[in-house]
Simulated assay, not measured.
Amino acid sequence: MQDIDMQDESVRRKIFWLLQRISSYSLWHKKRDAFRTFAAAYETAVKTWSPKDPEMVSADHLATIYEILKQYDTGLDELSLGRRFVWRKDEALERAVTRTGYLSDYFYKNPNYWERGGQFLPYPPKVDALARLLRASMYQADDAPLEVAGTSDQFARLQDPEWLLDKSQYNYSFYELEFPVFPSVLPEMPEPRGLMIRSGEEVPCDGIWEPMQAESASLRDAQAMRNAGCFNYFVAQIRAPNLSLIDEEDDNWDLVPVPTHWRLLWEDTRYRDGIVPDESAYFLAPRRDSQLPDAAFVQPVRTSELCPVSGEWRTDEFGGKTVRVEEGQVMPDMLVTDNLGDRMVHWVTWVLVREI
């Protein structure tokens, strides 16, 4: 893990920008749209895969999937008006995140690949394609705005900046989350507000808060405080959480709650006027090497996977077919008429023949 210093101005700007991004309407709208794409593909799989297929996915997940979609729609309606209570315990977007986490953990309970809430081998290709669609709706630390509730320790969700800035933290056992592309020039940090609260006290407003450590007996004197860790995003009316410390005694390595002071860096008042500004800078595309031929270095993709490049794609299976697909859309299947005249859905591999 990299050593990332919260005293470094560039680090502070990146963390601040990422927390604004994670709590933006546009990111949660993209999460909802990606989950809707997954839901459609999963429903199609349940309806079209043969019940005799040993890799068949469970129809039991559909109820959870429909619930998550409903929570996203409800939460986004509120968030578009600046009502951020939707991230509090048992509210719409909190439910969407926690239920998605459950769905991911129990996605494919085939004992050849899964045991006790954990995947231990790569899924079969068709199942993995669906799993990747699900993960397309997930972002690193997208639970950052959620209320910390339900435990006596009340640990802050973001303890270290490495969780957001170390690329290795985005790599999981069987998948990888996309690392964000930062603007060439990051906005300057705002001047800290004078508002200070302590762990356990009620958070008075939505926004980004910095943990602070007292350097003198004057605990409320901002000049006598220094940074104590990673910024966090808090929603109004929750209880400010603790930081954590590893207790190395007796080789237990237990996490110990450490009460701290939190200083308001930025109050989030976005969308209260019902207007969502242009937030496209939160989703800059990675730079592509212009020296590489357009199609030659783009990997083939399977039905239900997301199209990586807009262009003309061809499959030579089942007689062949060429289609035009836009980046981010789901790669199509093939509807083939068999010898009995029945039309059957088949998953195929698509190869890029021309980028557009």
Rank of each mutant, 00 (worst) to 15 (best):
residue 92 A to N: 04
residue 178 E to M: 10
residue 127 V to E: 03
residue 263 R to K: 03
residue 324 R to Q: 03
residue 48 T to M: 12
residue 83 R to D: 12
residue 25 Y to N: 11
residue 134 L to H: 01
residue 23 S to I: 09
residue 91 E to G: 12
residue 115 E to S: 08
residue 79 L to I: 08
residue 321 K to E: 14
residue 82 G to L: 00
residue 250 D to K: 05
residue 83 R to G: 03
residue 46 V to P: 08
residue 15 I to N: 10
residue 274 G to D: 09
residue 77 D to N: 09
residue 343 R to H: 02
residue 298 V to S: 06
residue 8 D to Y: 03
residue 54 P to M: 12
residue 19 L to H: 10
residue 216 S to M: 02
residue 331 M to L: 10
residue 333 D to P: 14
residue 26 S to H: 14
residue 328 G to C: 11
residue 257 P to W: 01
residue 124 P to T: 06
residue 65 I to W: 01
residue 212 M to E: 05
residue 333 D to C: 04
residue 112 N to Q: 08
residue 252 N to Y: 08
residue 106 Y to C: 10
residue 101 G to N: 15
residue 243 L to Q: 10
residue 70 K to D: 13
residue 169 Q to V: 14
residue 118 G to D: 11
residue 163 W to I: 14
residue 347 W to G: 14
residue 110 N to V: 04
residue 219 L to H: 08
residue 275 I to D: 14
residue 257 P to Y: 09
residue 331 M to G: 15
residue 51 P to R: 08
residue 316 D to T: 09
residue 200 G to E: 05
residue 191 E to Q: 07
residue 142 D to A: 12
residue 208 I to Y: 04
residue 158 L to S: 03
residue 56 M to G: 12
residue 325 V to T: 03
residue 6 M to S: 07
residue 229 G to W: 15
residue 86 V to G: 11
residue 287 R to D: 15
residue 18 L to C: 15
residue 31 K to F: 01
residue 189 M to R: 00
residue 117 G to Y: 02
residue 320 G to L: 09
residue 183 P to N: 00
residue 205 C to P: 03
